[in-house]
C-alpha cells in the first residue's frame, strides 16, 4: 500500500474529508487555507482561501456542491466547490471547532468554543436549497437553535449528525458523550464514556451508530438510538480521530503522543500510526505508519476503498487499499460466508 502524499499545507492538518463519491478530498489545516484534492492521484484541484486563522473543520455536502469551513477567526464560510468562491460567511461569537452538513445538506451544525464568557454551544444554521438542483436559494444568518453547554457538562469539542439528521451526537471536553434531538436541539441522553477530551465522533456509513475517540486512548462504538456501547477498542496512545470503514468490518484509529509531550514525557517512539481494528472482534489487525507527528484526523472514503490521514506534520497521506486488505477475513467470517454461499447455492439448486 503506497501512500500518496498530499503536500500543500504549511501547518498541521486539522481535518480531512472525502466527498460522497470518494473522488475528492477536502482538507484544512492551521494555515488558514483549505485544499481540495483529486483522490485518484493526489493532485490538488484548488484551494479555498478567505479565512484569517486556523481552519479547525471542513465538510462537504452530499452533492459535492458546497463546502463549509469553521475557523478560529470567529467565522463559518460556505464555499462553492466548483469554483472555490466564498458564498456566505457566518460570524460567530467564539472560534468554531467543528462544522458539518446534515445528511441532506440543508442544515449545518457548528461547535462553538466556550471562551470569553460564552458557555460554548452546538449551533445549527439552516440553508434553503433547491430540492432538484441542490442550489442554495436563501441562507439564514441567524441560527435555528443553539444547544448551549448544559449544567454538569464541560464544553463540546466535537459533534456529528446521525442518520437523516434526526440526532446530534456531541463529545465533550470532560469525556462525556451526549445526544440531542436533531430538529429541536432538545437534550435526550448522555454517557460518561471517556475520562478525557472526546477528540472525534464519526458515524457509520448509514448513520445509525458512531465511533468516538478520546485522549484517554480508548475508542467506543455506540448505537445512536439506544445509546448502548457496542464495542470498545483500546489503544496504547492518546487518540485524535477514529472512523468506521465501509465494505470491511474495520475501524481506523489515529492519534499519537502529542508532539509537545514527546520531549517531556517519553522518549519512546511517538506511535504516529493509523491503527486498524476489527470492528466486531475488537482485535488490532494492522498498523500503517508514515507520519512523523501525531495523526490529527483519519477519514475513509464512503466506498471503503481508500483512507486518508492528516498529521501534525502537515501532510495528508492518502492510501488506496491493496488486495490483501479486501481479502483479509477472519476464519469465522470466511466460514460463515462459505456456509451462506453453500446454502444459497443449495437453495438455488433445489
Amino acid at each position: 500500500m503506497r501512500p500518496i502524499m498530499l503536500k500543500g499545507h504549511e501547518r498541521s492538518l486539522t481535518q480531512v474529508k472525502f466527498n460522497r463519491e470518494g473522488d475528492l478530498i477536502f482538507s484544512c489545516a492551521k494555515d488558514s487555507v483549505a485544499s481540495v484534492w483529486y483522490s485518484i492521484n493526489g493532485e490538488r484541484l484548488g484551494t479555498l482561501e478567505g479565512h484569517q486563522g486556523t481552519i479547525w473543520s471542513i465538510d462537504v455536502d452530499k452533492y459535492t456542491q458546497y463546502a463549509v469551513t469553521g475557523s478560529a477567526d470567529f467565522s463559518i464560510k460556505l464555499w462553492r466547490v466548483q469554483d472555490g468562491t466564498n458564498v456566505f460567511t457566518w460570524k460567530t461569537k467564539t472560534p468554531v471547532r467543528r462544522v458539518e452538513f446534515s445528511p441532506d445538506g440543508d442544515r449545518i451544525l457548528a461547535v462553538l468554543d466556550g471562551v470569553m464568557g460564552y458557555p460554548g454551544s452546538v449551533t445549527v444554521y439552516k440553508i434553503e436549497r433547491d430540492s432538484a438542483t441542490g442550489e442554495v436559494l436563501n441562507i439564514e444568518e441567524e441560527p435555528v437553535f443553539d444547544i448551549l453547554t448544559r449544567e454538569g457538562f464541560d464544553i463540546a469539542s466535537v459533534a456529528s449528525w446521525s442518520f437523516g439528521g434526526n440526532f446530534i451526537a456531541v463529545g465533550h471536553k470532560d469525556g462525556k458523550v451526549s445526544k440531542y434531538e436533531g430538529n429541536t436541539g432538545e437534550y435526550l441522553d448522555s454517557l460518561e464514556l471517556h475520562t478525557q477530551n472526546v477528540s472525534d465522533i464519526q458515524f457509520s456509513p448509514d448513520g445509525t451508530y458512531f465511533i468516538t475517540s478520546s485522549r484517554d486512548s480508548v475508542s467506543n462504538l455506540v448505537d445512536v438510538v439506544t445509546f448502548d456501547v457496542l464495542k470498545t477498542y483500546e489503544a496504547d496512545c492518546p487518540l485524535n480521530s477514529a472512523c468506521i470503514t465501509p465494505l470491511k468490518q474495520f475501524v481506523i484509529l489515529g492519534g499519537g503522543q502529542d508532539a509537545k509531550d514527546v520531549t517531556t514525557t517519553s522518549s519512546r517512539e511517538g506511535k504516529f500510526e493509523a491503527r486498524f481494528y476489527h470492528k466486531i472482534f475488537q482485535d488490532e489487525i494492522g498498523r500503517v505508519k508514515g507520519h512523523f507527528g501525531p495523526l490529527n484526523y483519519v477519514a475513509v472514503s464512503p466506498q471503503g476503498t481508500s483512507y486518508a490521514s492528516g498529521g501534525e506534520d502537515g501532510f495528508v497521506r492518502l492510501h488506496h487499499f491493496d488486495k490483501s486488505y479486501f481479502d483479509f477475513k477472519y476464519d469465522v467470517e470466511k466460514s460463515a460466508e462459505a456456509q451462506k454461499l453453500m446454502q444459497a447455492q443449495g437453495s438455488a439448486a433445489s
Binding site: 456509513p205 445509525t208 438510538v225 472482534f281
Partner: peptide, 28 residues
C-alpha cells in the same frame, strides 16, 4: 460475537425501518 453483531444490525435495520422509515446500509 459475529452472530451478535449480525443480529444487532438486523435489529437496527428493523427499528430504522419501522420508526424512522430509514433503510440501513453498510457501504455508500
Amino acid at each position: 460475537t459475529l452472530e451478535e453483531w449480525n443480529e444487532y444490525r438486523e435489529a437496527t435495520a428493523d427499528i430504522m425501518e419501522s420508526d424512522y422509515n430509514y433503510v440501513t446500509f453498510d457501504t455508500t
